[in-house]
Design a binder for these strands. Structure first.
Lengths: 225, 225
DNA sequence: AATTGTGAAGCATTTCACAGCT
DNA sequence: AGCTGTGAAATGCTTCACAATT
């Protein structure tokens, strides 16, 4: 048993708690209740308590959670306390945006290597990190103990790039390319497809509502109950 | 009853089906089975059939789905058949990347207006769309019948920008700012927080595993069963 | 013979309700 | 008195298994 059985959804909420806790701690506030956390994050107090309880009892009954202590604990749970190295593959606009984001704002997940195929970009720097050719990828990932890969390459190149990351020993990939990656079971893949996000948003718009109703109407005949 | 009760998760899969169907249709293949769709998308055949069945019976038993017909139906369900207009707020690197993505690749969700506070950017163009000042936002959203807002502004400006989008009559917002938006019930908000994605990925890395175990160990005392 | 469409079962996640600490 | 931690109930989503259809 590798991981106990903590909902993936809960893991995704931890960084949100972390951010609020750090902000709160920075404001010199020492204690926060699940109700206050709920107000700031938009999740329910019960859910927050349950999420935290998966990892132990971090609060004080009748009081709340110590902001500094809890933020440290969450950073630890996520593995951010020691700084995780990430490689960015694809230095287009999206990659550039991510690199600036990540390199500047947090030290917890740091982009320490950047790769691209474009000879014009190779040798240039983003926030102090030199862009290198794809040929260097596998070895660099190994040498720099890089655990996370961020893929912002065109869909056609995604699979090949992902395989190189895998060979370098990456354990998780954040894939922005609209392509299904086929990798071994040791690499955790998280897909973010911006086109999907935009297109699915359209559904929640009046543009769709009637259309959907119409489609259902067109085809429904003997559907009841 | 506004929406029947179709899982949000199912809606998010529709654009994936759409993409594969369009690719398949473009390759002159007329029929595709749920099993083939499953192979190309990574979802299970049953799930695909169930998702589609929410909206009616689009396939032919013993045969499969007509690629062209089904892609049209999905586009319709999502409301993409008539083209949805979107406004981009914040023309930084991420905004720029999204604009290029969206304006070039698909006509279904089109960014037809871009706003920013930076005087140096105002008046310049991204892919043929002129960047305008925030003061124009509300009216432009109304005039251009814009239904979707894309927020790529700093967290501190997100709430104010979101309110302007809301006042302009936007029905859905894709929010990249790490801030909880407080808006009325008529605006559907989808958050994408790239920092969260990166930080939660760290959990699935060996950097965390021991750390998490350690935390649990530290605090677990009378937890059994 | 093949593949869809779908009730029912199975799982996972969220919410409820309250006991347990401080 | 107040707020956490947690079994139990409720809800939501996915998988199963098979009848229906071409």
């Amino acid at each position: 048993m590798r991981k106990p059985k903590i909902p993936e959804a809960a893991i995704k909420r931890l960084p949100v708690y972390l951010r609020v806790l750090e902000e709160t701690a920075a404001a010199e506030i020492q204690i926060i209740s699940s109700a206050e956390l709920a107000d700031k994050t938009g999740f329910s107090p019960e859910q927050i308590r349950k999420d935290l309880a998966y990892f132990g009892a971090f609060g004080t009954r009748g009081v709340g959670y110590d902001t500094i202590l809890l933020s440290r604990r969450i950073a630890r749970i996520l593995g951010l306390h020691q700084g995780v190295h990430a490689a960015l593959v694809g230095a287009g606009h999206l990659g550039y945006a991510l690199a600036r984001y990540s390199i500047s704002r947090h030290k917890d997940v740091r982009i320490t290597a950047i790769f691209d195929t474009d000879p014009a970009k190779i040798g240039t720097e983003i926030m102090g990190v030199t862009i290198r050719p794809m040929a260097d990828l596998r070895q660099a990932v190994k040498d720099q103990n890089i655990k996370i890969g961020i893929l912002t390459v065109p869909a056609t190149e995604a699979q090949a790039a992902a395989e190189q990351l895998q060979e370098g020993g990456v354990e998780a990939i954040l894939n922005f390319a609209p392509a299904k990656l086929r990798l071994g079971p040791n690499v955790f893949v998280q897909n973010i497809d911006l086109t999907i996000e935009l297109q699915s948003l359209a559904y929640y718009t009046s543009a769709s509502e009637e259309a959907a109703a119409q489609v259902v109407e067109e085809t429904s005949s003997s559907i009841d109950s």
